[in-house]
Each structure stands twice: as C-alpha cells, then as structure tokens.
Write a protein that binds this DNA or RNA. Structure first.
Lengths: 105, 105
DNA sequence: CTACAAGTTCGATGGATATCGAACTTATTC
DNA sequence: GAATAAGTTCGATATCCATCGAACTTGTAG
C-alpha cells in the first residue's frame, strides 16, 4: 500500500543516532529544541526560537535539525513553524531526546 | 572538608551537557564509548577501543572524552586504560548516556 | 644499557560547518 | 500593484576539528 504523498507533507525518517546527536550538540540548535519542547504543541514560529544570530544562520540550523529528523516544517496561517518530532525521535531512540530535554540547562 | 588530592587521581567534573553531547556525536568516539560499555568494569586498554585510525588520532579522541568527563584515564600494571564514568555521567544527566548506549547501532 | 612497545604531544593540513550579507520567494497589507 | 515582513537560498569567509606523521616519554624485556 502506497503512502499518500498528495499532501506533500513529506516526513523524512529520523536519521542515524550519530546525526541526531550531532544536530543536538550545537548550542544554537539545542536552544531551539528546548524552546520547541516548551512551546504549545511543540510548535513555534521560527523567529521565536533564536536570538543573537542572523535569520539566514537560523534557517541553516533549522535545515540541519530537519534533515536529522528532529523537527518538521509546517505552514500554519501563512506563517512557517517548526515542530519538534518528539514521538518519532523517541520511537527511534527511546529516552535520548527526553533525557536531554529534562537535563539541567 | 578537603578532598584528598595526594593520590593525584584528579577526577574532573562532568562537563556541560553541550560538551558531553559533542563528545558523543563523533562516530569514532561513540564507538570507543560503546566498546568501553561492553568491557569488563567498563575499562579497557586504549588499543582495543579503535580501528582504522592512527594512535595519535585516537589519543586526541581520548582527550576529548576525558575533558568532557565521560571517561577517565588509569594506569593498571603499566598499561594505560580508559574507564567509562557511567555513574558520574548518569548523576549529572540522568538517562542520557544509558539511552544512547541502549540505542540500536 | 639497548631495544621495543604503548601513548602522548606537537605542527601542519584538509575538510566540515557556523556565520554573515545580499538576493530571491511568498504572503499579507495598504 | 507597491510595500513590507518572514524565510530560504546562495556565495564567501573564518573557525573549528579530525587526521596524520614525527618526535618525545615511559615502562618493559632482553
């Protein structure tokens, strides 16, 4: 049975553990993930997820997180949002993301 | 009460989560940590912990792991060994190391 | 004491990547 | 439709770091 791709929601699989760890090892990206985890529905507009860097740099980090399968891009009401794929990452590597997020800052 | 430093065992504290994640995000180092976890007493001679790289490179990775507080160097019977500081890392960031180690390779 | 083995340290090098600014895309608003 | 706002893409740059080889240290064996 084929997946219905007509919605173009294209959710990529969570990457190798190595890639997930590398994605989370950067301070800017870990902060983004932490803010997402604190947000309603683990979803937030891009601009709320970073400070002190240019938006092109932020966009680069979003891409890195997405390619690792840690986040997903979605458009709601014309605005681009990022969503933390908590369940998918948990499914692939149980405890990894949640233990990191519950660690002291 | 002062700690007794006369034994020169100098155990540094586990580093910031960022540093621990960065240490584990490298494929060579993660493999080293996995082999340590599988070893008796979580301890092994350096040469058993890597393949396919020069020993100077390996030494560099050992240093990175040690400075993150993930491993400890000890000398047993004249041979240098690395020991995984499982309990210390668990104490600092509960679940992080163990969930990574129990993740599929 | 000499030779060898195991690790470390030191420079040097190449590749990866974090960062920026500018140009482009796409919506929304006036 | 022009103007603004939010993100992305693209080049360019600079820094970080994984890797190597060579020299050094230390301990063991002969």
């Amino acid at each position: 049975m084929e997946a219905d791709l007509s919605k173009s929601s294209e959710l990529i699989p969570v990457g190798p553990l190595q890639q997930v760890l590398a994605a989370l090892a950067d301070p800017v990206r870990l902060e983004m993930v932490r803010r997402l985890a604190d947000a309603e529905d683990s979803t937030a507009a891009c601009s709320l997820l970073y400070d002190g860097i240019g938006k092109s740099t932020a966009s680069h980090h979003f891409k890195t997180l997405r390619e690792a399968g840690v986040t997903q891009r979605l458009v709601e009401e014309g605005q681009t949002h990022q969503r933390l794929r908590t369940d998918d990452v948990e499914g692939a590597y149980p405890g990894v993301l949640t233990s990191i997020l519950s660690s002291p800052r």
